[in-house]
Amino acid sequence: MSTLLKVQGVHTFYGSIEALKGVDLEVGTGEIVTLIGANGAGKSTLLMTICGNPHPRGGRIYFEGEDITGRPTYEIIRRGIAQSPEGRRIFPRMTVLENLQMGSITARPGSFDTELERVLTLFPRLKERIGQRAGTMSGGEQQMLAIGRALMSQPKMLLLDEPSLGLAPLVVKQIFEVVKEINREQKMTIFMVEQNAYHALKLAHRAYVMVTGRITMSGTGAQLLADPEVRAAYLEGGH
């Protein structure tokens, strides 16, 4: 398996506060990799740093072997990284279809119809709601839309920032099943940041644990799931 994304010793600052203190991480082609950690550990910061906003102050980021450190966001996205941002950030006053169309704004010409078909098969619920204003949908549907929108650009890699945030357990399960399906059917590489450690670890091929800006542990999903330290910190308490 070739490495698709490589993060090497990345330091990111917000002003004088060091949010990432030298992060190393790799995502291979076709993998589901998840990053778990508590609130404020720097998980979302890492995702955003990969996308070039903010830029890291130290370290390098490689995508498909090419150095993308310091490149502008739109260029990084156009290289084939799609993001479902934290808090979903769909366009609430636009219809579902318009939202999906926005996702295809950087896609190859002529790909819209096939991609739309694929996304709507993946999320039949979105097909039902196609003409509805996105802001009037439930949280779960909005999350589906955010993922669908990201897929519309035909990315090589999908970044998911806490897809389970604020959703009911049953909906979380649905979302993770679709994530698994996207990976299986489309051979999509997925890098996912999650607080919902149990579901995320069960789903992921490999996983990293982040504590205050540093990667403290890594292994296969199953390994971390069985690790007593991980269990104590992230899993005990009713998941």
């Binding site: 739109y74 996205i77 950030r89 926005m102 704004i105 950087t106």
Partner: peptide
């Protein structure tokens, strides 16, 4: 509609 979301969609 959303400046940040636009950036994450690859809009310059």
């Amino acid at each position: 509609e959303d400046d940040i979301a636009s950036a994450s969609l690859g809009i310059n």
